[in-house]
Design a protein around this nucleic acid. Structure first.
Lengths: 278, 278
DNA sequence: TACTGTGAAGGCTTTCACAGCC
DNA sequence: GGCTGTGAAAGCCTTCACAGTA
């Protein structure tokens, strides 16, 4: 169990630590100096951004920290603190101007230019990722697909050709891919990752159940569905014990009371189907 | 933008706060009292568990904190601290007995009994989740599938019938579903969630881009792929700025040097394809 | 008046470093 | 000698509470 020499730091999806020297200074009208955005804040900014987009679609002009916080699932103090890292774009007594704040967050996250995405491993999940329309709409066009299965190489998904893994360096170079999604089985992941890195890809989202070793200039984040389920299972078990120790109850269908009407931000009508990644 | 009365706490995937009163006491030979496992530790225990499983398959009897930490992507101090929350199962001067530690973590996470899983929303992602074989192998058999699209209701995926969303309460009750995966479009998610909760489901993994409102006894975790990509994009942008300010370089394929051989724990041969969620 | 922006306080998590044990 | 288990220190992150402003 010793490791290869090019050991790097792993990405963990729910990363614990570290703040970020995020200078927003850029060509043209520079924003107030704004530095050191905490990692945790960056993740939430992405959420605020989406909610602001929805608010804008609904025609809202301004939003208070309380409102935006509620739909984003945080408390208003945290939201204000988060926004304070990118500058003072609010109006006291009023709130935030929706479109302007949207723009500022977009700029801070570096979303003013598109990032070409490659998906490697067109299995169940890879196929779903390749077919997901939402990435392109958010500035992440899926631009290349790879696998080694001869039955898959050559087919098109959403108009994109599946190519052989051996062509990763050439294709990614040609198309300027900057983000790679690794959706291969575990044993293949490191090899694929190395090829992506060799092709100049600097950011990798890893769905494979291994810790990828990368050089320091490459950023990895990990999404691990099995871990998510196990954390949930832990909470089920805890709850069950608490119940057993506390109010003894029947076992099946215990929760009962709760309004069964819809209550999402957009209303309550059913529309289950369609493309549903993310 | 006011909220429905049954507001609960949101789940955030990368949850920030809170430790957990995880008593391990149980019928039979009780383990040392072991309480208050931090949330962050629980998530990592799930990773250690998987790595221990792989080590066991490879025939390892013992493993040191350093080795297990490396393959899990953490440092050894953190690993030892994490393990100390569940008890003292290591042997000084030697390491941990692989099978015994595996068992202890399994017990702590409440994985000694199976949890039936329902997937709601059989779109791109839902289909991938439904077809993923890995859940069943880890004690999370996918037991029910739901959608409202008439073209989907009635078909089978991996031998499981897709049923109508309106039957969630009945079917989940009958089959003892304890975990629900919400993979619907945003607008449908809250309604579906309410039905799952009414059916007695206590844990929900939410892939929809909304914050679900649930009563306090229900646990929600959120997986948001768009957010993951945006966080990566932020790092790309940051890096690009640093580069522009520092060593001026060519733009395409800059990373270059790196061994292109495989180096995952299991070896380096290619085998890209097959079922590849998580 | 209503709401933002932010120092300060409090918690949680990670890291350090070393005592204790095999 | 080597490795685990763990107090203590340090670092992040969240929450509080209120000054400041449109």
């Amino acid at each position: 169990m010793t490791l290869p020499p090019h050991a790097g730091r792993p990405g963990t999806g729910a990363n614990g630590t570290g703040s970020i020297d995020g200078r927003a200074g850029r060509t043209g009208t520079a924003a107030p100096v704004t530095r050191a955005i905490p990692e945790a804040t960056v993740a939430r900014l992405a959420v605020y951004l989406r909610m602001l987009g929805e608010l804008a679609e609904q025609g809202a002009d301004t939003v208070s920290s309380e409102e935006l916080a509620t739909v984003s699932g945080v408390n208003s103090a945290k939201l204000r603190k988060d926004l304070s890292y990118i500058g003072s774009y609010g109006i006291r007594g009023v709130g935030y101007e929706v479109r302007s704040l949207h723009h500022q967050i977009e700029r801070t996250l570096g979303l003013d230019e598109q990032q070409a995405v490659a998906v490697v491993g067109i299995g169940n999940l890879g196929h779903a990722l390749a077919g997901y329309g939402g990435f392109g709409g958010r500035g992440f066009p899926v631009t290349a697909l790879f696998d080694i299965d001869p039955d898959l190489v050559g087919i098109h998904i959403n108009g994109i050709l599946v190519e052989h893994v051996r062509d990763i360096p050439r294709v990614c170079g040609e198309r300027g891919v900057t983000i790679g999604l690794v959706a291969t089985p575990g044993p293949a992941a490191q090899s694929v990752c190395d090829q992506l890195v060799a092709a100049g890809v600097r950011c990798i989202l890893n769905f494979a159940p291994v810790v990828l070793q990368v050089p320091p200039q490459v950023e990895v984040r990990k999404v691990d569905l099995a871990v998510e389920l196990q954390v949930l299972a832990f909470h089920v078990a805890r709850r069950r014990e608490a119940e057993a120790a506390g109010v003894l109850e029947g076992s099946a269908a215990p929760v009962a009371a709760l309004p069964t009407n819809g209550s999402g931000p957009t209303g309550g009508h059913e529309a289950v189907n369609g493309t549903a990644v993310s």
